[in-house]
Design a protein around this nucleic acid. Structure first.
Length: 294
DNA sequence: ATGTTTGTTCCGAT
DNA sequence: CATCGGAACAAACA
């Protein structure tokens, strides 16, 4: 599940709890198919100190001494759990960083049921290369509605699909893209080509509102309980979903539509988020006679 | 049993 | 050649 709010929560908690620790050893699970070169580069990090923890898009980045960085991407079902050595085993453990600070020893366990998650060791240069592949940062103040509009217009697809594209704007996944579209009353199937600055502004505000609320609530844990924070605790944003998993629209009471859009389950209210641009056209522009090429 | 599932990457089609 | 969309990746659950 980890989308930006979940990754943010994990990264923030790690920063408070493991900065200053040193990597003492690393354990790999026998079934975890990690490439040998990554295993090797991880093993070279033994003895190094964790200087900082950061988030880049949906990646968690541990900054180590001497220009080394560990990047975790949790994909769909990845977890990072901070445990004491005596704590009972966790499910689906891929690898464990055993870290210490003085006499204090802790384990950072990277678990992943579906094994889509990734771990990578890079230097600053390669980290920057990875960072540069991502699009706008939703939470950064300097990201403007004009920037978003420009990126959206560069693609020929629907808005839902565009929001999921990390090269356009990074951090959103299926849940928060769905929620932000509902908040801004935009139909997920609306072509990005039809966007106006007014819509982009509204959308960016909704994205920020949604992400900030979810961060405050420490992310969302779905009924499958896959996402938990580093202490194994669920988030609470699922209690504040406005459309995701809903049957009835909170706002107007009509039946929520569920449809696969680009392969991803999407919830939307056909009344609050009409596809026809009849509502909210306060612009004086004449609605463009769109060619409906079939 | 078949169809779902929070993400990303790759490949084929256009 | 660039872009888009779907399949694949793997495992558990209903």
């Amino acid at each position: 599940m980890p989308e930006l709010p979940e990754v943010f929560t994990i990264s923030q908690d790690l920063k408070k709890n493991i900065v200053g620790f040193e990597i003492r050893s690393i354990q790999f699970s026998s079934y975890y198919r990690v490439p040998d070169d990554i295993k090797k580069s991880l093993n070279k990090l033994i003895g190094k100190k964790i200087l900082d923890v950061d988030r880049v898009a949906k990646n968690i980045v541990l900054k180590l001494s001497k220009d080394d960085y560990i990047i975790f991407h949790l994909a769909m079902t990845g977890r990072l759990l901070l445990r004491n050595c005596r704590d009972k085993n966790d499910n689906w453990v891929k690898l464990v960083l055993i870290i210490c600070k003085g006499d204090e020893i802790k384990e950072l366990r990277f678990c992943d049921m579906r094994q889509f998650g990734k771990v990578l060791v890079v230097n600053k240069e390669n980290l920057n290369k990875i960072i540069s592949k991502y699009g706008l940062s939703a939470l950064e103040e300097k990201t403007s509605a004009e920037d978003l509009l420009y990126n959206l217009k560069s693609r020929r697809t629907n808005i839902k699909n565009a929001l999921m594209d990390q090269k356009i704007i990074s951090g959103l996944g299926n849940i928060y893209a769905t929620e932000a579209l509902f908040l801004s009353k935009i139909n997920p199937k609306l072509p990005t080509r039809n966007f106006t600055l007014e819509m982009s502004t509204k959308l960016l505000n909704s994205i920020r509102q949604e992400l900030k609320e979810a961060i405050k609530n420490r992310g969302a844990t779905l009924p499958d309980k896959m996402y938990v924070d580093i202490f194994g605790k669920p988030g609470h944003q699922q209690d504040y979903f406005k459309i995701y998993l809903k049957k009835v629209c909170d706002v107007c009471g009509s039946k929520v539509e569920f449809e696969k859009i680009n392969g991803r389950g999407t919830y939307f209210c056909p009344i609050c988020q009409p596809l026809e641009t009849t509502t909210s056209n306060r612009n004086k522009k004449i609605p463009d006679g769109q060619k409906k090429l079939l």
